[in-house]
């Protein structure tokens, strides 16, 4: 019985990157796959199955969430932000610009999740120290960069965001 129920498709409506979208999904569908396959926003990546790597991190109502560990139906009626919503009219977000300027990425697979976690951090407080950044991104694994340049990028982006706020 359970299997049959989990396969039944239900409509899920959410606001993603400012746009309201509705799609049908099995109630067991994970938010990560709903975003990638139903909404065709493939910038959000899946790198593990234990909520460990953070490649799938998106913001739900402004809070970083590992979208591989949330059901799409749980996001119904909520506001979701993904990497595709970061740049505005072709202008890079300060975080994107800083990652590019500081060689904060290599293969790029962890980068969208890393950007979204950092975005939530900097929105709370753009003036961050190395220690704060390192702890904030500890749920996002990167196998290429050794984190040094990611930390540098986030601090630099924070400084720019602080100036923009003033």
């Amino acid at each position: 019985m359970e299997k049959v129920e989990s396969r039944a498709e239900v409509p899920v409506t959410l606001t993603i990157n400012g746009e309201t979208r509705t799609a049908l999904a099995e109630s067991r569908t994970l938010l990560a796959y709903f975003i990638r396959e139903n909404l065709e926003l493939t910038g959000t990546h899946v790198g593990c199955d234990t909520t460990s790597c953070g490649a799938c991190t998106v913001l739900v109502d402004g809070v970083p969430v590992k979208s591989c560990t949330m059901l799409a139906v749980q996001a119904d009626g909520h506001v979701v932000e993904t990497v595709e919503g970061l740049d505005k009219d072709g202008v890079l977000h300060p975080l994107q610009q800083a990652f590019w300027d500081n060689h904060g990425l290599q293969c790029g697979f962890c980068t969208p999740g890393m950007l979204m976690t950092s975005l939530a951090l900097l929105r709370k407080n753009p003036n961050v120290t190395e220690d704060v950044v390192r702890h904030a991104i500890s749920g996002n694994l990167c196998r290429c960069t050794g984190y040094v340049n990611i930390v540098k990028s986030v601090i630099e982006a924070g400084q720019k965001m602080a100036l923009e706020e003033v």
């Binding site: 493939t42 910038g43 990546h45 970061l86 990652f99 590019w100 790029g108 980068t111």
Partner: peptide, 14 residues
């Protein structure tokens, strides 16, 4: 980088 930081990389599962 410009494509990768925008989530426009094209990886296998995409």
């Amino acid at each position: 980088d410009p494509r990768l930081i925008r989530g426009q990389g094209r990886y296998l599962d995409d």
